[in-house]
Design a protein around this nucleic acid. Structure first.
Lengths: 189, 189
DNA sequence: GTCTATAGGATGATAGAC
DNA sequence: GTCTATCATCCTATAGAC
């Protein structure tokens, strides 16, 4: 029974616009115009432009944090956990493809507590990912070579998935997961 | 005998600011302030903000185009060519790390002919990369699997190299090249 | 090559009517 | 929940003095 509030609608429209031209280039008038109302009317539902950005970014960041915590608490091999992380990124990309552009490119325009919350979640996520790879090397599930380069390579690919998904059109989720796991993990085993 | 003109100085300062907060968020006053002059003085050297952005992005895009043309005209194996492309990205990243942020995130703010020129170069670059991978699969130098996913994975990593390089601090060029080639190509051979 | 002054318009946000 | 009207500020860019 999920009713879409007017605020949700604003955030969704804004995310689509932010993806194309970025937070700073989009005006409150742009967002309002896309909804066929006037800019002043937006303020009946949100406190300002900053709240929209925080809503877009922090919700997805929270999903990544929750997903990561689930994965690392599992009783399974490192490779299986990495596989689950790849699938986590794909699932979130399909469900929030507009928001990921803001998360990647506009997070620095968050202010105050919003900015701190985001940076903390992102750093923690990266640390967990790094630790996972290091453990994988220790237990010989991953070839002992360049852990930092492996981390960077996998994360770069996963973080820009939304660009590719947007461009290549809708692909079958399960095929996509299988292919990504194959290409990203075959080289490091 | 390369003298740095006042214009070059403006472009360089702007690129550093654009990297941190994006083209749209940076004002002419910000750029001028960073140079300890007034915004109006900038217009004695450049025609406007747009020219600065075009200067930053198109110079690097041209370097990628030139580099790609050299690589594909070589008489060597596909894997050797891919290796050279990885080294090309690393060399350009080290020489123009500030410009790469604008190239990745602010190219859509180019206007008119500048925008067309950029899109043409980028598409051609991608097509060449794609063709190289397909040929590699045909001649059995690359494992016949998911050419599109391989292309995306390698390109994503190379295109975000500047983020990593900025964060990890200065690394030895040759070590970096060796590690990147190893991690990016081991999985597809 | 830089300055002051300013044009001309856009921007985020508020007040108050309906 | 949306509107009109408006404020105070900021923006790119130009004109003309030094």
């Amino acid at each position: 029974m999920k009713t879409i509030s007017r605020k949700d609608e604003i955030v969704k429209v804004a995310a689509t616009l932010f993806r194309k031209r970025g937070y700073s280039a989009i005006t409150m008038r742009d967002i309002a115009s896309e909804m066929d109302i006037k800019a002043a009317s937006l303020y009946n539902h949100i406190s300002g432009k900053q709240e929209i950005l925080a809503d877009i970014i922090l919700e997805v960041a929270q999903e990544f944090t929750t997903g990561m915590n689930q994965v690392i608490s599992q009783q399974s091999s490192t490779l299986k956990k990495l596989e689950n992380l790849i699938e986590l990124h794909i699932d979130i990309t399909l469900n929030h493809s507009e928001a990921l552009a803001s998360l990647n490119n506009d997070w620095m325009h968050l202010e105050g507590d919003n900015l701190n919350a985001f940076i903390n979640m992102r750093d923690e996520y990266e640390d967990n990912f790094r630790e996972l790879i290091k453990i994988g090397i220790e237990v010989n599930e991953i070839r002992s070579a360049h852990p930092e380069v492996i981390l960077f390579s996998i994360l770069s690919t996963l973080r820009t998935l939304h660009l590719w998904y947007e461009k290549r059109g809708k692909l079958d989720v399960n095929v996509l997961k299988k292919d990504m796991v194959s290409v990203l993990l075959k080289g490091i085993m």
